[in-house]
Amino acid sequence: MAALVIAEHDNALIKGATLNTVTAALACGGDVHVLIAGTNAAGAAQAAAQITGVSKVLHADAPGLDHGLAENVAAQVVALVRHEAKGYSHLLFPATAAGKNVAPRVAALLDVAQISDATKVISADTFERPIYAGNAIATVQSSDAIKVITVRTTGFDAAAATGGSAQVEALAAVADAGTSAFMSSEIAKSDRPELTAAKIIVSGGRAMGSSDKFNEVLTPLADKLGAALGASRAAVDAGYAPNDWQVGQTGKIVAPSLYIACGISGAIQHLAGMKDSKVIVAINKDAEAPIFSVADYGLEADLFAAVPELVSSL
């Protein structure tokens, strides 16, 4: 039996979340194979072959597989699972926007249940996952022959991106379903570390007051610390920060070594996204804010005075 990791990649490079997913796959026991489905994705396939612990890379290349269209990628995974003589016992996707989009579609086509956001592999059929915005942890056991899982990347260490030497095997690509088409994308350009991979995150809430203030106050601190910028849902909904900065149950789940929450009250939905951070610092002028109950260091102060002072003392 083997586990198949469906890689997230941009055709040239493997995305970081794939490495955490490989670690989860190794914990399930058996060989780990990686599927690269894409267009002109030989670079990504070569990169996947270098990952420590991967024993085989399967590479399907066709125009219809570009942009991770769920209809085509899911069909590709199902075709591979049905074709493989030994069969796969586990199919693992990173719990990113791309993985969450495709994994349930694959599970339904195989008529099996899916386990979302696994944070721990207890045995080959038993997993832990958070429910109710992380307020409870469920231990769940799957009775299906094939386990389809999305992996919460902050729950697993990244596998080493080099040191492996897996074989790359070409796969026949499935035909384009033709029911959906990619039109365009707007990807925010940023020189900062990626939010989910950052070691330090500086995050702002509704108290920032405006998009200008948000940038004016938090950017210098993030620059000084080499940190990524995050935001609460309130700040995103108010238009102070772009939506892909949102940390929380319905945004990104992060676990940096240092999380600095500025002007964030600490609603359940936000805490669900950051409470596994190693050290949490809260700067808030409301002494009663729930964020102080999870913060290792709380500073009760006006952030517009405290943050610039923090920048100058670093």
Partner: peptide
């Protein structure tokens, strides 16, 4: 159901933090 919930537990609690007086 295809998935059985074996148990539901509290998430690990974070240790109590401290308030600091200044930057």
């Amino acid at each position: 159901p295809r998935i059985k919930t074996l148990k539901v537990s509290e998430p690990p609690k974070r240790g109590a933090g401290v308030k600091v007086p200044d930057v």
